[in-house]
Design a protein around this nucleic acid. Structure first.
Lengths: 298, 298
DNA sequence: GCTATTTTTAGACTATCGGTATAAAATACT
DNA sequence: AGTATTTTATACCGATAGTCTAAAAATAGC
């Protein structure tokens, strides 16, 4: 990642932790990072996009630590599970990110909402497989239920704890308590066979909230426009990228976009953006176009 | 309640449901209600205060319905409990209030935060006594734990449901499922005797976050100022109210405020504001002064 | 080391928002 | 009818997110 970008992210990160997202103005970030406004908007299209970069960074960090924790331990080690869950909680607490997580739900930024949603989905998927690993494997049919309930309990216990005191409590303590409560649930549910979520409940789609294909197309075009702008600005003249993007824009606006062409160009686009700062963005774009085409053809 | 005030509240309410709190501007409310800006600020000191009025209104509505539901039924009727919990959930869902509930946590409006906190506390207290009523009375030592975990499960189950589909689900279904999961927890916890929250865990204080008495005093004075302004504007000349407020302002700024005088005047103030629109506000003020005096004397 | 290119800067600018202020018009009270 | 109160329209303020530009600074390629 570009050094300047990292510098901005770090500054914003510090401020978000210190004062919270909503109460941190762009100007604050500029002052903290010691940069000009133009520089900021050179790297992020908005404050939200900056937050998204931070969230992604933080998630990576957490995933890494979780891996390290598991290293050399048996998969069914309960203490490891507790510690792993605690990592995310501690990071979230340290970074005051739970607040952000919820505060954005009233924002209209679809990208940010999607990011949060997807991170949440991934967390649940991870936890539900971990639960099958730690507990009796036969509970796998209910493991998503268990993951959801466990997280719900943990978060709410923590929340209520904060209602009553400003003292800190070790996340592990909360998690262990909730986990102990989960155990009888697991036993009971395997008896009663009552199930709430099938294990394939969680979607992997990028943005299921948009079902209208014209809306979707508009969003894709906006994304392309943004990407084009960035490419025009940032890269040493790379006509190819620009050409690809232009083509996609034209083709998408045609009455019957040719799927095979889109597919091909998207592949190429992903390829030329590999390992760049925009890899993620391009991948997302690609998925969105796919989804769009499916809708149009249906 | 004043008709005009109700008119504004209704308009704002509709808009908050439709577009969410953050995305509804004051101007939107003015247009929807067909009033001028001045009128709005005649009744509410801020957008947040308007939201607070709505939240209080909605809570009342819910409490009422819960009472009606319980009427004539036995206290240990499980179905009644489920329906009662569902009421608040449905209202929250209908009013998109969960979003608000969380979104405000990043705001710096202490009043609003306090209101939400207090409503949350009340909900938990209510639920924990209801749980002892419905289930074995011997579980009362753990009933707060159970209330917290039940709500945590319910909310998270609902949240994850929405991640996977846009289909509606009956709140009762979610609640019943979570309640069935709670049962083995209750049994197990009475065995293991592991407890997380003592039943006196929840505070009743108005704003425990402010521990600094000078900060507190400042807040009280601001509140008095606001109240004074309103009184000056709204009521037909009522010198008494104004006098009381002025006195409180002076006395509080004295080096050693005389507790007995404050007490007396606060009583009178509560009395003259009884059944007015500001009853709640005055009561809160009163509690804050009490808390303040305790701190000062300690 | 020089030049061409890119990045960064400072700051002016727009539009929106929450909130204040005020004078005139409408309404209510007596 | 005359006075007090509420409501309106509108101008205004300061803060904010975001755009744009022209010039300075940094950096790359040769």
């Amino acid at each position: 990642m570009n050094a300047k970008k990292k510098q901005i992210i770090d500054a914003a990160h510090r401020l978000f932790i210190e004062k919270g997202f909503a109460l941190t103005s762009i100007q604050d970030i500029l002052d903290e990072a010691g940069i000009a406004k133009g520089t900021f908007y050179n790297y992020f299209a908005s404050k939200n996009e900056c937050l998204m970069a931070i969230l992604e960074f933080v998630k990576e960090e957490g995933d890494q630590k979780r891996k390290e924790l598991a290293h050399g331990k048996l998969k069914d080690n309960e203490k490891v599970l507790v510690a792993q869950i605690a990592i995310r909680m501690n990071i979230n607490r340290k970074h005051s990110i739970m607040a952000v997580f919820e505060s954005v739900s009233v924002s209209d930024d679809t990208d940010l909402k999607t990011l949060l949603k997807n991170q949440h989905i991934e967390e649940l998927k991870w936890l539900s497989t971990r639960i099958t690993e730690v507990f009796r494997f036969e509970n796998r049919r209910y493991s998503l239920d268990h993951a959801v309930m466990l997280l719900g309990m943990v978060h709410h216990l923590m929340h209520v704890w904060k209602l009553g005191t400003s003292k800190e409590i070790a996340s592990e303590e909360v998690i262990q308590f909730a986990l102990n409560r989960l155990k009888p649930i697991i036993e009971e549910q395997m008896q009663s066979k009552e199930v709430f979520f099938q294990n394939d409940w969680l979607p992997m789609s990028i943005d299921p909230s948009v079902t209208d294909s014209t809306e979707m197309k508009k969003k894709v075009l906006v994304k392309l426009e943004r990407l084009d702008k960035k490419v025009g600005k940032m890269e040493r003249i790379d006509q190819k990228k620009s050409d690809y993007i232009k083509f996609l824009q034209d083709e998408l606006q045609a009455e019957w976009p040719r799927t095979f062409l889109l597919e091909s160009v998207l592949m190429s686009l992903s390829h030329v953006f590999e390992q760049s700062d925009y890899e993620h963005e391009v991948n997302q774009l690609s998925k969105m176009v796919w989804q769009l085409m499916e809708q149009i053809e249906a």
